[in-house]
Design a protein around this nucleic acid. Sequence first.
DNA 1: TCTGGGGTCCTAGGACCC
DNA 2: TCTGGGGTCCTAGGACCC
Length: 439
Amino acid sequence: MAVVALVDGNNFYVSCERVFRPSLNGQPVIVLSNNDGCAIARSNEARACGVKMGQPWFQVKHLTETHGLVALSANFELYADMSERMASLIAGFGPVQEIYSIDESFVDLTGVRGDLTERGRKLRARILQWVGIPCGIGIGPTKTLAKLANHIAKTAERKPGRYPPELAQVCNLAALPQAQVKSLMAHTEVGEVWGIGARIAAQLKAEGVHDVGALAALDPASVRRRWSVTVERTVRELQGTACIELEQVAPDKQEIATTRSFGHAVTELNDLREAVTEFTTRAAQKLRGQHSTCGQVLCFIRTSPFRPDKQYGRSVIVPLIRPSADTRALVQAALRGLNAIYRPGYRYAKAGVMLLELQSETIVQGELDLTTDEATKVDGPAARALMGTVDRLNDRYGRGSVQLASAGLSGDRRTWTMKQERRTPRYTTRWQEMPIARA
DNA sequence: TCTGGGGTCCTAGGACCC
DNA sequence: TCTGGGGTCCTAGGACCC
């Protein structure tokens, strides 16, 4: 029988911060989204204070005074580095690993001998000691059941009494008697299942399916008729039939986006041009990173739906004459799109660029090219070499060291850059920000 | 005053073809 | 008077994930 594990970091972003500031242990701590907009990670103590996932910062700000809540700006550079360290330790757990998100890995344990629960406990202890991140580990016959086991492991630790205490931290459903698995499912809400979101959970409950046990007892074919093949797969996975494969190598992205809310409302076309240039530059860099070209560039702008102002939002897709990964060609297309959709008189809150119709850079459509000057040919060898050099320079000297002039030159004058008032040092990736231990 | 960012998959329905 | 059947492709939108 197949066995899958899911290892994930508890309150991952908060745990990363705590590694370098142990005084935050035991405190209510949240990490804020870009622009210090809303809570995207919460310590257990912050949950206990009532902070909800995704809740706007200004709504919980008062808790800093009443409950000592600490709020930090997202430090993604730090989290990405900690994530790599954690994933490299998890790799030793079994032969096949799928890095599913910044804080989660699936591991295929099929055929791995020994007491898997015990191995899980050792892995957990090692990650805690070597990286400093506390994890939850769930093990089961399918990915969905491993996810469920992981939920039980974390909840048993966070809410004593909710599940049997011996299932805390590491929960191996594959090693439990059928009757106990049934009982655990009966005590878990249907909305906790991986793949069942708020909408479908509400529909299930309306039809009398409240807990995971009831969902697992449904007939897959009827589920497909009533909902969709996606929900059917979830039901089958809960029944022990694997429908979702492990993906050992991450497939290339089918689309690449860079979008941002602004720190302040933006009204001028020129500021939007700077922002769109920068977003496209970032997206193009990601595109070259996976050795792809794109065929279309989508550009959008919109006002804030949370404000009473008059609203405006539009997007436009600009097709390229030929697929490209050249920043200049992509920025040109994005700015052309921006010009077409910009309307004066609105307070813009967000803009973004998406690269669509991605394909491998090795696919080249032959064409009759009458340009004779190699140096000016976009996507000729000279252009590709130029982009490679720009990427290496920015990699070595920091983002934005070399950029297009339309990105704007004066940093101070920029009205649109994001707000990040409480970012911690990038302890593990910048020499200047390395923590110093004093005796 | 202040509300994130980046993805994937699936389905229904329209356009179009013979 | 009476107006088919079968298929593909594309797109927008919904739902989900972290």
